[in-house]
């Protein structure tokens, strides 16, 4: 299976199952498009007719291009078959090892954002803070169920985790105390709304947090539309100076600013560029996921605008990079050469299997998006996963469990998408959230185009340095 598209002056052909990416000219693009459904004579006739005014497109040129296409097909880099369905079955039998936990250290928040999937941090339940004892047991559970895996991840999440900051620090200290003797390495992430960020938080996070996620939606009026405190005041003016200080202090360490866009700001690149111009260089912006009748829900009419926005973003990022002022965007951060193996691409985020969420009371859920839904409680940090049927359901929840994905060219980039989004949109974790699929495919086209652009620019620079007079 292949996928062909043109974007920003590039003609691109993806071979879905091998992962191969080809940048081609117009003739090759058309030949590849006809290759599987036409005879050689039909292709030659069609190309000679289409390019009759082109002196460089001759019968011999077309034959040569056809030979190149056939060579790539034989090398398994074009029109390759899908050999992974069987691997997916093997992978479903994988062990029950856990490698990542989302620790809900606070089911409480000092902001009152109306679009919050977590119901202002309470997850439809009572306010609560995780005790050190529950968190310690969660870390012991993770170490005890991680098998031979060395790298373990813990996200401090909420609500607002800084409302329980002392417990966060104590849990980090405990993890550092035990990781050596168990041959483990903990990588911590902190997600915060910024209200309680101060110098002490910055210093500790820079010492211990592998990544920091800072919640900002963009322009002041966009941010303050939803991200307000309990008296209704916007939080933009309060958090921006703190986050800027935090981001600068991170240096080379990972952080990213994460916003949410809604129907009210489909021109979301304006928000990203606003953040970039403030000085934030590592950005992410997620489409809101909510009930279709919610006023902030994205609509079908928004889609063409959003597609254009993603293209604008990709082109602007390339421009800024050429000017030596690069910014990153989470969804465009793909690594074609050293990217994930096929097992990762089949299994995705690992929710419900190798990735679990822990509530302040120690209950286990498939991920943070399922917390608060009693039907998805899987066990607790003392007894482990007791609902093994649910774990098995999530083990089978991969791209090959979704018939809708069978004909999708992006299936090995998204692994079938987010189980929680599918559950909320289609009523089943093995369903699909079609609106999200459309946005995802557009983002991948843009991300791959950027990789092609950078590759060609590098090749051109190398050629010029080898032959400076050319």
């Amino acid at each position: 299976m292949i996928h062909q598209y043109k974007l920003n002056g590039y003609s691109i052909v993806l071979d879905v199952c091998s992962g191969a990416v080809h940048a081609v000219d117009d003739l090759a693009y058309d030949i590849i498009g006809m290759y599987e459904g036409s005879t050689q004579d039909e292709i030659i006739s069609a190309m000679l007719a289409k390019y009759a005014d082109r002196t460089d497109v001759t019968g011999n040129e077309i034959l040569e291009c056809l030979a190149d296409v056939e060579a790539l097909r034989e090398a398994g880099k074009l029109f390759s078959e899908d050999p992974y369905a069987g691997k997916a079955v093997d992978f479903q039998r994988k062990s029950n090892e856990v490698k990542a936990l989302c620790l809900h250290v606070a089911h409480s928040c000092n902001l009152n954002c109306s679009y919050c999937f977590a119901s202002q941090g309470k997850y439809k339940g009572e306010r609560a803070l995780m005790s050190f004892e529950v968190g310690k047991q969660a870390l012991d559970f993770l170490v005890g169920h991680s098998g031979k895996r060395v790298n373990l991840e813990v996200d401090f999440f909420g609500g607002e985790p800084l409302l329980n900051w002392n417990v966060v620090k104590d849990l980090v200290a405990y993890a550092r105390e035990i990781e050596g003797r168990h041959n483990k390495k903990f990588r911590f992430t902190l997600t915060t709304n910024g209200v309680l960020v101060d110098d002490e938080v910055i210093e500790f996070a820079n010492r211990e947090m592998h990544n920091v996620v800072m919640s900002i939606d963009g322009r002041p009026e966009v941010h303050d539309r939803f991200r307000v405190d309990y008296s209704g005041r916007g939080s933009y003016e309060q958090i921006i100076p703190k986050f800027l200080k935090f981001a600068r202090a991170r240096g080379e360490r990972d952080y990213y600013v994460r916003g949410t866009y809604t129907h009210h700001n489909v021109d979301f690149t304006e928000d990203l560029f606003h953040l970039a111009d403030l000085g934030f260089t590592r950005l992410s912006m997620e489409p809101v996921v909510c009930a279709p009748d919610d006023p902030c829900a994205l609509t079908d009419e928004d889609l063409p605008v959003l597609f254009e926005q993603y293209e604008i973003l990709a082109k602007e990022m390339l421009r800024r990079e050429r000017e030596g002022k690069p910014i990153t965007f989470y969804h465009y951060m793909i690594d074609l050469e050293h990217g994930p193996c096929i097992y990762k691409r089949i299994s995705g985020c690992g929710s419900g299997t190798e990735y679990l969420a822990v509530t302040p009371w120690g209950d286990l859920y498939p991920c943070h998006q399922f917390v608060g839904d009693d039907a998805y409680r899987m066990g607790n940090v003392w007894d482990g996963v007791t609902n093994t049927e649910m774990r098995d359901e999530f083990k089978h929840c991969n791209v090959y469990a979704r018939p809708e994905c069978a004909d999708c060219w992006a299936r090995l980039y998204c692994s079938g998408g987010c189980a929680a989004n599918a559950y909320h949109a289609a009523g089943s974790i093995t369903g699909t959230y079609e609106y999200g699929c459309k946005l995802f495919r557009k983002r991948m086209e843009c991300a791959i185009m950027m990789q092609v652009a950078k590759y060609q620019e590098t090749m051109k620079e190398n050629a010029e340095s080898m032959c400076p007079d050319v």
């Binding site: 003739l27 090759a28 050469e337 994930p340 096929i342 990762k344 691409r345 990735y355």
Partner: peptide, 26 residues
């Protein structure tokens, strides 16, 4: 100019043999 330029990518089929350690980030 070559009409088809293949970008360097990880071979997914080979990664079925060399991959699967589970040490990557989630």
């Amino acid at each position: 100019m070559k009409r088809i330029q293949t970008i360097e990518t990880r071979d997914l089929k080979k990664s079925a043999v060399t991959g699967g350690c589970g040490e990557c980030q989630t």
